[in-house]
Amino acid sequence: MTVRRADARRNYARILAVAEQEVAAHGADASLEHIARVAGVGSGTVRRHFPGRRALLEAVFRDRVESLCARAGELAETADARAALLEWLELLTDYAIDARGLANALLADHDSASNEGCAATVAEASAPLLSRAVRDGVVAPEVTAEDLLTVIAGLALATEHDPPAARRLLALVVAGISPPR
């Protein structure tokens, strides 16, 4: 493991804090140059810590994604598979709306050949919830974790300027993939 110098750790933390604010305000297309300027570092320093936009976005979303994945693990232990999956989908929808740019990161990951990043991590965390819901017959067997991520990302992007609509649209989607019994 590489030990970073104290100034490098401070720069990393400052860049990440500014990036979180900028992504929240401007989404995934937040300017890397602007982030560097506000953080008080050069653009080369940003690129040294984050070799590309995707690396920066993954660092910005890491805590949220880890929290979401932990909650998926907790929900996997609940008795009602349908309720567990639906609660998790609502949490994912809320995260994707609150963290502007997360939806783009999920879609970008999904479109890449890589099995790393936000989408792969979230899909992996959702797999036990979805598998159990399919096994219990409360979700159609052809539904995949990637399908659910794409739907949630699409909802978040489509309702970016009307966040309350996302929950209403999620309810419509849920009725289609898992009608109440």
Rank of each mutant, 00 (worst) to 15 (best):
residue 52 G to M: 05
residue 83 A to Y: 00
residue 178 S to P: 05
residue 86 L to W: 11
residue 173 V to K: 00
residue 119 A to N: 03
residue 177 I to T: 09
residue 51 P to G: 14
residue 114 S to D: 11
residue 100 R to P: 05
residue 46 V to N: 01
residue 40 G to D: 01
residue 1 M to D: 10
residue 163 P to K: 06
residue 61 F to A: 00
residue 131 S to W: 06
residue 104 N to P: 12
residue 179 P to V: 09
residue 98 D to P: 09
residue 144 T to K: 08
residue 55 A to V: 15
residue 108 A to I: 05
residue 65 V to L: 11
residue 65 V to F: 05
residue 17 A to G: 11
residue 162 D to F: 14
residue 149 L to C: 07
residue 56 L to I: 07
residue 116 E to C: 04
residue 77 E to G: 15
residue 131 S to R: 15
residue 165 A to Y: 06
residue 52 G to Y: 04
residue 105 A to N: 01
residue 89 L to E: 01
residue 55 A to L: 12
residue 180 P to N: 02
residue 60 V to Y: 02
residue 137 G to L: 08
residue 117 G to Q: 03
residue 150 T to Y: 07
residue 29 D to E: 15
residue 51 P to A: 14
residue 162 D to A: 11
residue 102 L to Y: 04
residue 165 A to H: 04
residue 166 A to N: 06
residue 134 V to K: 13
residue 91 L to I: 10
residue 46 V to C: 07
residue 112 S to L: 10
residue 16 L to R: 06
residue 70 A to Y: 03
residue 100 R to L: 06
residue 51 P to R: 13
residue 40 G to H: 09
residue 54 R to E: 07
residue 48 R to V: 02
residue 78 T to L: 15
residue 113 A to G: 15
residue 105 A to D: 09
residue 17 A to D: 07
residue 175 A to S: 14
residue 116 E to K: 10
residue 126 S to M: 15
residue 92 L to M: 09
residue 129 L to I: 04
residue 112 S to T: 04
residue 167 R to L: 11
residue 4 R to K: 11
residue 140 A to S: 14
residue 25 A to L: 10
residue 95 Y to R: 13
residue 144 T to P: 05
residue 155 L to S: 00
residue 106 L to P: 00
residue 67 S to P: 07
residue 165 A to S: 15
residue 123 A to H: 03
residue 174 V to S: 09
residue 41 V to T: 13
residue 90 E to C: 13
residue 102 L to Q: 03
residue 46 V to G: 02
residue 148 L to A: 00
residue 141 P to T: 08
residue 153 A to R: 00
residue 40 G to E: 05
residue 177 I to A: 08
residue 118 C to K: 00
residue 72 A to F: 08
residue 2 T to N: 12
residue 48 R to K: 12
residue 68 L to E: 00
residue 144 T to D: 03
residue 100 R to V: 05
residue 10 R to Y: 08
residue 138 V to P: 03
residue 142 E to Q: 13
residue 122 V to P: 03
residue 108 A to H: 08
residue 167 R to N: 08
residue 164 P to E: 00
residue 14 R to Q: 12
residue 88 W to N: 03
residue 51 P to N: 11
residue 125 A to T: 05
residue 42 G to K: 01
residue 1 M to G: 14
residue 50 F to D: 01
residue 31 S to D: 11
residue 147 D to L: 14
residue 81 A to L: 11
residue 153 A to C: 06
residue 82 R to C: 08
residue 114 S to L: 12
residue 175 A to P: 00
residue 113 A to I: 12
residue 145 A to C: 14
residue 73 G to A: 07
residue 84 A to K: 03
residue 104 N to K: 05
residue 164 P to C: 05
residue 177 I to D: 03
residue 47 R to T: 12
residue 88 W to C: 01
residue 95 Y to E: 15
residue 137 G to W: 11
residue 6 A to L: 08
residue 12 Y to V: 07
residue 44 G to I: 04
residue 130 L to T: 06
residue 160 E to T: 13
residue 176 G to H: 08
residue 165 A to L: 15
residue 77 E to A: 15
residue 78 T to Q: 14
residue 106 L to S: 01
residue 13 A to P: 06
residue 2 T to E: 10
residue 18 V to Q: 02
residue 96 A to C: 07
residue 56 L to G: 03
residue 50 F to I: 10
residue 168 R to V: 14
residue 173 V to E: 00
residue 89 L to K: 01
residue 173 V to S: 06
residue 73 G to R: 15
residue 98 D to L: 10
residue 22 E to G: 04
